[in-house]
């Protein structure tokens, strides 16, 4: 009987001593993050077989070649993302030309010609010139 009373008392006192609410603990959950693996949304929503083929090549390159390389591209979006986006938006003739143009510009000698992307800190050079006019902090 004494043991039961003692256990009940201890359980009751432990209830009184509890400080955290569920929301307080939930708030702390955001302190750590699981590492995020890149998701290439640009390779989705293909309109025809050509786009599908280029998206496949892009994913193959990103997964097996680019992943083994140090970060070397100066731009946001990267040259491979730019190429795929250009092919998707400008077609099979103008798209590759735009991609080659971008590759020729991917050097470290003309950095003053571009704004820096606020999130990545890289040079900002979108495929669509309308996006370039977005106000970005220098």
């Amino acid at each position: 009987m004494t043991r039961i009373i003692c256990t009940l008392f201890l359980a009751w006192s432990s209830l009184l001593a509890w400080g955290q609410s569920q929301s307080e603990i939930a708030q702390m959950r955001g302190l750590t993050q699981a590492p995020a693996r890149p998701q290439w949304s640009i390779a989705q929503d293909n309109q025809d077989e050509f786009q599908l083929a280029f998206s496949g090549m892009f994913l193959l390159y990103k997964n097996f070649i680019s992943s083994q390389d140090a970060s070397r591209c100066n731009f946001t979006p990267s040259c491979s993302e730019y190429a795929l986006e250009a092919i998707k938006s400008r077609g099979l003739l103008a798209g590759p030309l735009a991609a080659f143009d971008r590759l020729s510009r991917c050097t470290s000698v003309n950095q003053e010609d571009y704004t820096r992307h606020p999130e990545t800190g890289m040079l900002y050079d979108p495929v669509d010139p309308a996006e370039e006019r977005l106000p970005l902090p220098r």
Binding site: L15, W18, Q20, Q22, I25, A26, R29, Q33, A34
Partner: peptide, 22 residues
């Protein structure tokens, strides 16, 4: 980073499971 995240979340799970009335 991933393992540390998992461990921290499990610690918080343990704390949450002890909230009186839950």
């Amino acid at each position: 980073q991933g393992e540390r995240h998992r461990i921290f979340q499990q610690l918080l799970d343990e704390m949450t499971s002890q909230i009186p009335g839950k």
